[in-house]
Write a protein that binds this DNA or RNA. Structure first.
Length: 468
RNA sequence: UCCUCAGUAGCUCAGUAGGUAGAGCACCUGACUGUUAAUCAGGUUGUCGCUGGUUCGAUCCCAGCCUGAGGAGCCA
């Protein structure tokens, strides 16, 4: 009986495995000189070199093509080559499934430089490429760390519904859910005869439900997919994306910002510690593709950890932009307008040169649930803006006062009807509370240096694209 | 949704200032027991995104459409 191991385990403890007989399974990345096979099993970006038996039949050898899945039993030995310190000398080989060379040619497995667009078109095969498997491992560690972080801080993980009746953002377009089919004489307007006897949608956020959970459980978070039916064709938007939304009772805006900053920094630290091989690989390749001379990925991550984020209120931010706009040839901005992405990028990349937190936005550009300040004009909102990708977190202290909430809803012309339960929470032990939404995919974009958000999620959903 | 750009071999791309196309790699055949996307020799490969128009003739010019990318808006 031979034990099976994964490449990550072998490389972590090379000496322990020397001269040991082991079993390994994976996919062929390349075959050289008829005896050297680079095998990858997904556990790490690094490959294990397999030395095939010298007298292997030619017909077998021909079957060991790129992408072929194999099982090998052999002895771990010190490698004579330069690129690796150990290798597996094979004594038994089993081919699970050989890949025909004509298929390889048509696929992204072909050992060539492929564009990320090409990889996207073969999203079902992307997991077999180095770059995408690196990103997926980082995505895993990021998600895992989020649970770890909140668990350690005594938050409870709340599963908020994916099917909802309310639109928390007020103006986001939502996906309508119905069981009425096209052939029916009913239309989607006959929602009172539909499955739920209500108009239902895919959730754009779990916030409202999380708020009611926080009033009782104290500290909660949601982490799941959310859906936006906006027709946005950009490198930063998805129709289905993953969002982390903590919601905390007795937290004010400042506590909220502190939590958000600590959370992001914690995740980055965790990824730096656990995904260094993947980050090195990405850095090496991004450098090549972007024709950059300097390493930038890992330094950028370390840089975020170094200093506190710059906190600035909306009104001050406007002043800075209007003072500097002539120099930078951007449009000036009037109080009450939202920032354009060039404004945000100016503040982050040029003016402060660190991630920034902008808070106390005018109430007219923010949703109804945010707590209004004493000035009556601004709300206790905060956005965290990161270099290159822009807004990564949006949050606020919530309006916990019943009358103020009602007033705000009236002003924003949102229907109270479906929100009755949310409003009612303000009558039962309402407390100051805060929360934020962290876009997981955007955070991973920043960590991995991917320019397009479609390259950090396994099967992206965007307008016109749900192929896989 | 708007603006800009692109679509040529399996991949990355060049090209034709209107006369149906080429490079590198891949692939195929052969050689090779220490390679690192191995090397050497020989060989194959295309509705030049789709539809229509102008023309003796369109991959090239014009129009429409489709697909993709970058940017903007919406936001996470």
């Amino acid at each position: 009986m031979v034990n099976k191991y994964y490449i990550k385990e072998l490389l972590k403890n090379e000496k322990l495995f020397l001269n040991k007989k082991i079993l390994i399974e994976g996919w062929v990345r390349s075959i050289r000189y008829s005896i050297f096979v680079s095998l990858n099993d997904g556990s790490t970006v690094k490959n294990l070199q397999i030395i095939l038996q010298k007298n292997l039949d030619k017909s077998i050898l021909k079957k060991i093509t790129i992408g072929t899945s194999i099982k090998v039993v052999g002895f771990i030995e010190k490698s004579l080559g330069r690129e690796q310190s150990i290798e597996l000398k094979s004594i038994y080989l089993y081919i699970h499934k050989s890949v025909d060379t004509t298929y390889i040619q048509k696929s992204i497995l072909q050992p060539k430089k492929h564009t990320l667009e090409k990889l996207r078109k073969q999203a079902h095969l992307r997991f077999q490429t180095n770059i995408f498997s690196c990103i997926m491992r980082i995505r895993h560690y990021t998600s895992f760390c989020i649970h770890k972080y909140f668990n350690k801080k005594n938050f409870f993980y709340i599963h908020t519904p994916i099917i909802t009746t309310s639109n928390c953002e007020g103006n986001s377009k939502m996906f309508h859910i119905t069981t009425i089919d096209n052939n029916s004489t009913l239309s989607y307007k006959d929602y009172y005869k539909d499955f739920f006897k209500k108009k239902t949608y895919l959730s754009v956020s779990g916030q409202l439900e999380a708020e009611s959970a926080a009033i009782g459980l104290g500290k909660v978070y949601t982490f799941g997919p959310v859906f936006r039916a906006e027709n946005s064709n950009t490198s930063k938007h998805l129709a289905e994306f993953w969002m982390v939304e903590p919601e905390i009772a007795f937290y004010d805006l400042n506590d909220n910002i502190n939590l958000a900053e600590d959370c992001i920094k914690n995740i980055i630290k965790y990824v730096l510690y656990n995904c260094l091989d993947d980050l090195y690989f990405l850095e090496k390749n991004l450098k090549k593709w972007n024709n950059k001379k300097q390493d930038f990925l890992i330094n950028r991550l370390k840089f975020v950890l170094k200093k506190p984020f710059q906190r600035i209120n909306y009104t001050e931010a406007i002043k800075i932009i209007n003072k500097e706009y002539k120099k930078i040839k951007y449009n000036p901005i009037v109080w009450g307008m939202d920032f354009q992405s060039e404004h945000e990028q100016f503040l982050v990349n040029k003016y402060f040169n660190i991630p920034i937190v902008i808070y106390n936005y005018p109430s007219c550009i923010k949703p109804f649930y945010m707590k209004i300040n004493e000035d009556g004009l601004t709300v206790k909102a905060m956005d965290i803006i990161f270099p290159y990708i822009g807004e990564i977190i949006g949050g606020s202290q919530r309006e916990e006062r019943y009358e103020f909430l009602i007033n705000r809803i009236k002003k924003t012309k949102i229907s109270k009807k479906n929100l009755w339960w949310y409003i009612e929470t303000r009558l039962f032990g309402s407390v100051p509370h805060s929360g934020f939404g962290l876009g997981l995919d955007r955070l991973i974009q920043f960590i991995t240096g991917m320019k397009n958000i479609r390259d950090v999620i396994p099967f992206p959903r965007t307008p016109n694209n749900a192929e896989f």
